[in-house]
Design a protein around this nucleic acid. Sequence first.
DNA 1: GATCAGGAACTTC
DNA 2: GAAGTTCCTGATC
Length: 335
Amino acid sequence: MGSASPGLSSVSPSHLLLPPDLVSRTGLEKVAAGAVGVERQNWSPSPPATPEQGLSAFYLSYFDMLYPEDSSWAAKAPGASSQEEPPEEPEQCPVIDSQAPGGSLDLGPGGLALEEHSLEQVQSMVVGEVLKDIETACKLLNITADPVDWSPGNVQKWLLWTEHQYRLPPMGKAFQELAGKELCAMSEEQFRQRSPLGGDVLHAHLDIWKSAAWMKERTSPGAIHYCASTSEESWTDSEVDSSCSGQPIHLWQFLKELLLKPHSYGRFIRWLNKEKGIFKIEDSAQVARLWGIRKNRPAMNYDKLSRSIRQYYKKGIIRKPDISQRLVYQFVHPI
DNA sequence: GATCAGGAACTTC
DNA sequence: GAAGTTCCTGATC
């Protein structure tokens, strides 16, 4: 757990590149408060976690707690990219340009309407990003979006994942043998009792999942599935997304899944040349760890993962690019 | 020291 | 049997 956390961090204040006054706690509260009014109209009743709040306000109120520091995203801002960064990313991170003419965050005199408008944009973007992150986690962990449906094994997977994502202390033992239903029935205090270090944060994360599931149920009656492809990428998503096929996921599919979510995993693995299928593993330990979680192989490391990748050489699935570089591989058939 | 390459035995499905 | 996983040796960066 060396790197900054992905996932929800894609919508952390620094990622949104808000001006410093809006990034501050009071600023976020202002954003959240501004979102509440709109929220009530659009999303009706509040999620189970915070009955008196709208969802986005609920999420936003968590961000300070969940992201005490995540300045690494700021480095991803345009102009701060590494020298290897291709001129255009396949999937751009949402950026609010406060300097742009008619900037959406004009807080000067007469800028109130604009401010409210941009806050709506921010809140809807935040909620959208949270839902996308949950969707991605579901795919990678092969679990359902609704925590109530989780088996004890699913709970442990989610715990491992959440600990990893948000650099929380290991808490798996404290919640051993608990199914999702029991977990969801527990109060924050009970979480704290079981795990004094991080139990409250874990409870907050579970609340987010519960709220998302609740919302999803509201908006689309029926079973909660994040299997329908919602991504806009040009890569053959149906080919890549194996999480609902019942088939075990292949390593190459897993790698593509990560590559398709650059705003979540771009710090771990990213395209160097998407057209040619050339990608670079930026953080070998994290990618290996994610793969280990996905396959239930806690002892997974990059040495083993890379051995599996090398097995693809013979099969003609992955190869080293013509100009061989460390941690750089190429899909033989990119499209 | 980390990564790369590939052989070989093993596990899981 | 396929698809990794684990362990290993030796080479390279």
